[in-house]
Design a protein around this nucleic acid. Structure first.
Lengths: 121, 121
DNA sequence: GCTCACCTTGACCCTGACGTCAGCGTGAGG
DNA sequence: CCTCACGCTGACGTCAGGGTCAAGGTGAGC
């Protein structure tokens, strides 16, 4: 059983973040009689997953929706549908980003043609 | 010369957003003697570009940095460097998203194996 | 039994990209 | 002249994902 600081260190997040996740219902912890949180080792991976989902632009509610499937390894059809929805959302985001990237790349190409004399600066 | 509402409609953003962009120095407008904003047609495209950059995760300051190149079509080497930096940032984001997507997709595959009997629900 | 690092809750602070409301001016049609 | 949609500024609200500070409890070593 890990203490909150250890989980934070191992997962690379702040203690505050872990308490916030708990507040959002994303992460449970057992408590010692005095009230201190104790986490299983698996919590570290769980936190990393949560971070990854946040990075993918999901909000706490979305993560909360998909977490049960991760946790249990099984999923109802409804859960699968939600997961697929999130995956498609990410796909849409990737598409948007790719477009933006192309846009920038094109601007760079144009700009390079207008400043061709300068090779190394 | 377009009024603010028209630009907002055509670009698919709110009037408030346009005023905010102006506040951030991203979008200029002429003013009628009474103070109303008047935009050239080109503003619509400009706003769309701004939106695309926001969608790519750039902040107002970043957009402000890269806009001159778009506007003028030319770029100093320093500008090119900034553009390239933003492009690379987007690339990193895409990589992260792709990872998250794969993670979700895997969870879906696992889940599907655990609920294979149910085909249409 | 003392110390000191670690933990607790609660409360307020922050940034970004707007939403929203108030109170008022503007301008084109009937 | 009246109306009514549209525009203006300024100020405050919102939401997420935490940071930070305060005031105190806990627990393992010495």
């Amino acid at each position: 059983m890990l203490r909150i600081g250890e989980v934070a260190d191992r997962a690379g997040v702040s203690v505050r973040a872990l308490r916030y996740y708990e507040e959002q219902g994303l992460l449970e912890a057992e408590r010692t009689p005095s009230g201190q949180r104790r986490y299983p080792e698996s919590a570290v991976g769980r936190v990393r997953f949560i971070q990854q989902m946040y990075a993918a632009g999901l909000g706490s509610a979305d993560v909360l929706e998909v977490l049960p499937c991760v946790h249990t390894g099984v999923a109802t059809p409804a859960m699968l549908a939600r997961l697929a929805e999130q995956r498609d959302g990410i796909d849409r985001q990737i598409a948007e980003l790719t477009q933006a990237r192309e846009r920038l790349a094109e601007i760079i190409r144009i700009g390079e043609r207008h400043v061709p004399a300068d090779a190394a600066s």
